[in-house]
């Protein structure tokens, strides 16, 4: 159990492309626990490892009853479109803006034990998954700001 500091926009770890996880050990498990703890404390929807300064492809999502831990995640299918307001625990809320995301995504990832799984989510959880995956590429949501009406 540990609450970690959430790094803010401008820190280098948030603009790095994260590395793959290759070892599924106690340390990874601890990292995922910390991510959940930090997420719940901050009352967010999702949190990626680079947000707490760990440049690894790990993220957690907990929103609208969807709880997922994602290690080395990939979006393997996406359908539809949704446009909605988005924010981020690492970015000042004055930068919140609308972003175009897929309505439904199927994500393929490992859990902390190294087991591969696939899961399809829609609406807010889908938006959240896309947002966290962007973090793993070093991309922040407002750079994808929706330009239309």
């Amino acid at each position: 159990m540990a609450i970690r500091e959430i790094f803010q926009e401008g820190e280098e770890c948030l603009s790095k492309r994260c590395r793959e996880v290759t070892v599924f050990d106690e340390k990874l498990s601890k990292l995922i626990d910390d991510l959940f703890d930090t997420l719940h404390k901050a009352d967010g929807a999702g949190l990626a490892a680079p947000q707490i300064g760990v440049v690894r492809r790990v993220a957690v999502v907990d929103v609208d009853g969807v709880t997922m831990e994602l290690v080395n995640p990939q979006i393997i299918k996406a359908e539809g479109e949704q446009i909605g307001e988005e924010g981020c625990l690492s970015v000042d809320f004055s930068k919140n803006c609308r972003v175009l995301r897929p309505q439904t995504v199927t994500v393929r990832a490992y859990d902390r034990t190294g087991k591969l799984f696939e899961r399809t989510v829609s609406d807010l959880p889908a938006r959240c998954v896309c947002h966290e995956l962007d973090h793993l590429e070093g991309i922040l949501f407002f750079t994808r700001k929706y330009q239309g009406k």
Binding site: R17, I75, A78, E81, V99, L100, R101, P102, V105, C130, E137, I139, F142, T143, R144, K145, Y146, Q147
Partner: peptide, 20 residues
């Protein structure tokens, strides 16, 4: 000032940027 806009999922350029 972030006056650019990156492509949304599935749009032109998204894959190129993601996989470099």
């Amino acid at each position: 000032r972030t006056e650019y806009v990156l492509p949304a999922y599935g749009k032109k350029g998204y894959d190129e940027i993601t996989y470099n």
